[in-house]
Write a protein that binds this DNA or RNA. Structure first.
Lengths: 248, 248
DNA sequence: GGAACTCGGTACGCTAGCGTACCGAAGGGA
DNA sequence: TCCCTTCGGTACGCTAGCGTACCGAGTTCC
């Protein structure tokens, strides 16, 4: 069932403009033209679920200024395993021939994204061309991110991981200030809310960040990078190498 | 530079035979025929490095009865993020358009594998066909494994993770006994050797496993599955669903 | 203006796993 | 046969982060 869901705004000028999804922006005009009318610019609200474990994925999303998370589940809980912003796409399982995923995809930081029905996406992604090449490389980049997070969860302190996480999100929203509660952060990092509060307080004390009721502000980016583990830099460089993107 | 490296044994009868790599076994005869003469059956020795971080990957390996690991690095150490046996392929980064990877690939359990030069692999993998479809699905399966490991490392005890790991390897070597020292296990799980010894002793006490100087034997598979976290079962099912494979 | 809720600060006792270190037993090589 | 190396058992003190819980301040809604 292609050609679904009408666009909720009229299409903006296509290409690499400031606030566009980078995968879409990198497409040759001809390829983009085929997609254009099928894309729907939609709001992505915080905590919105993009797909649930083992349920059919209905659409893929190219975030513009929103950030989404892929979560892995266990017992009652969940932990974030991957973070997706305007450098990428929420929906790789579809690209890789799956209909469902064992994880959950959820919007982390509100914003907008381009929604694309999976039927169209499949058709375009299987065509030999730039989109496919980009998706392959993006897959490799995301695998790197997830892999590094596996090691990171094993090896690094909450303080390092929190710092890393704040930077990852910053790179994706391209702002130093965004909305996130400690509770939410705890769920992402897989730690108690109380641990986040203590750790965030420590980062605030040394003026790397500041925050008030759900608003996090990065005060000293380079300092925060020093407080983070090398996982941040390793993954950032790999994204850059693979995609020429500024996001880590 | 296709058509490199001579085969070190003469090719065995192609298809789905007992001890073949399952990806290769699933290829239609025509596709397999094109690969056949390029595959070299090679020994894979324990601790052999298949690729190093940020160095060109030279060949991909389809394990037959060996098991390999993908490791993510940090500071001085490393942790396993993915385990690959005869259900898969060591070399997905190449499939995904990368020349290098940030991780390391190492042989875990000795055995044999089919080695394929990357030039040939790239050519075949980019052809529209069964191989490509299999590789896409295998990529999705491996992403699931890595993702679940991220959560697992955050949420589960060493005892649960050790049990899970032993089962994962068992499924891939398709034997209940294999060679692994506590030291090695510790490196895979990202814990101290001493912790492995204590944990393994606990599993031995309740007769789920037994071991002596580097040889691990699973005595009670179903019991060990109960001792493992659900991560094992979640991933196993996903492999089966995506690939119809018996490996978790 | 007050009630109800959300968010963050903080505290207390607990424990899994760490770093380190030492020892004996098994196995391999000459 | 003996030596040397590898492997596993065990112990001690340490600490990061957990579970739980309570409190006050900011927000939102009526």
């Amino acid at each position: 069932m292609p050609r679904t869901r009408a666009r909720s705004t009229t299409k903006p000028p296509p290409r690499a403009e400031q606030n566009a999804n980078q995968l879409l922006a990198a497409l040759p005009p001809k390829d983009y033209a085929r997609l254009r009318s099928e894309l729907a610019t939609v709001p992505m609200k915080q905590k919105q679920i993009l797909w649930e474990p083992n349920r059919p994925i209905e659409a893929v999303y190219f975030p513009i200024n929103a950030v989404a998370s892929i979560l892995a589940l266990f017992d009652g809980g969940s932990v974030e395993v991957g973070t997706i912003g305007n450098e990428g796409l929420v929906g790789l399982p579809v690209f890789l021939g799956a209909i469902t995923s064992t994880g959950r995809a959820m919007v982390q930081v509100a914003g907008e994204g381009e929604r694309l029905d999976i039927a169209v996406f499949r058709r375009e992604a299987h065509r030999e061309g730039r989109l496919r090449q980009l998706l392959e490389r993006y897959t490799q980049a995301l695998v790197t991110q997830v892999s590094q997070s596996t090691a990171c969860n094993r090896a690094h302190s909450v303080e390092q991981r929190l710092a890393r996480w704040l930077l990852i999100v910053r790179d994706r929203v391209r702002r130093n200030e965004y909305l996130l509660t400690h509770e939410f952060l705890g769920q992402m990092l897989g730690v108690r809310r109380a641990t986040v509060s203590e750790t965030a307080a420590a980062l605030q004390r040394v003026k790397l960040i500041s925050y008030r009721r759900g608003v996090i502000t990065i005060r000293n980016g380079p300092g925060l990078e020093r407080a983070a583990c090398e996982c941040y830099e390793i993954v950032r460089q790999e994204f850059e190498r693979l995609l020429g993107t500024q996001s880590g």
